[in-house]
Simulated scan of single mutants.
Amino acid sequence: MLSISIDELLKNVKDIAKTRSATEVLRLPKWLQPKIGKVNEISTVQQIIKQKGIHTICEEGRCPNRAECYAQKTATFLLMGPTCTRSCAFCQVDKGHQPMPLDPREPSKVADAVNLLGLDYVVLTSVARDDLSDQGAGHFVETIAAIRHLRPQVKIEVLTPDFRGDRDCIATVVSANPVCYNHNIETVRRLQGVVRRGAKYERSLSILQHVKTLNPEITTKSGLMVGHGETVDEIAETMHDLYKVGCRSLTVGQYLRPSLEHLPVQKYWLPDEFAQLGAIARQIGFTHIRSGPLVRSSYHAGEDGQL
């Protein structure tokens, strides 16, 4: 446990922020340049994904780490098609169109890809599917079962949408016993309506709390994007709120604007500021924290004794 208090950590990160000029132009800083993997290693993953006709959030969400992750022969699989029924103002994933019908063969396709890549830790996420009666919860379960059929030893993390707070949907996914249940709160309470259209701060907290009620052994995890105009105090408040509902794993990363149609970046946080935010989370009590400019929800998931 750190000897420095949370109040001192908050002061440190605010002092760092004050060193930035108020008139600074928001150009992409050098510390946000993603790592580049070897072409042959990257193409292996891309070929398998294309061959199987499946999707990854790495591609659909334009993740800055996809080259690094592909070079390590890993990916975060995006279930239920590339079209989301929500229209969050930060997200690159396609939206606003009629989603495709579920592919009944998708679970087996994803399982085949996992097997071909030889993965021991898998992250499954999905678009929001408000058009489905169970919002896709059953599809998560089918995919988990298909993966375990081919690789019984595999550890599976799920990153789910909010299922509109439907406890039956949450219970369905929890019944498949993933090692980690991730649901991103994304931003601070004040900015929820602007950033996460259709989502609610308290609803996200209740989802993570309900998972722990159903199965205390499952690790719960959440993620924050910074750069939307939030304050350090608001971030710390969000961390406290997540901790109170049993969440012990947290990611904090920089929001990057996918296009001019998305929300503009209000601030590029400095690497030292991310280090201080990570220190605040550890002081609060989070057992696993990744905080950095290019950190994303499933970045190096399952490493460092996280689970």
Rank of each mutant, 00 (worst) to 15 (best):
P293R: 09
T83R: 09
L242Y: 06
C91Q: 01
Y121T: 12
C247D: 03
E261P: 00
V188P: 04
V127S: 05
Y268G: 07
S259M: 07
I207V: 15
R86Q: 11
T160V: 15
P216D: 01
P34W: 00
K212C: 07
T251W: 00
I54H: 04
G246L: 10
T85E: 05
S259W: 08
N184W: 00
V211I: 02
T23Y: 14
G223S: 01
E142L: 06
M1G: 05
V127R: 08
A301V: 02
V232Q: 14
Q47S: 12
C91G: 00
D166N: 15
K52F: 09
Q192C: 11
A111S: 06
Y299D: 09
V25W: 03
G302S: 09
N215I: 00
P271V: 12
L79G: 07
A75Y: 05
T83W: 03
Y299C: 12
Q192W: 10
I16T: 12
E59C: 04
Q92P: 06
L124P: 02
L116D: 13
R151V: 15
Q276P: 12
V45W: 05
S206V: 11
Q283C: 15
L208S: 04
L214V: 07
E142F: 01
I156H: 10
I16L: 14
I57V: 13
D162P: 11
G227V: 09
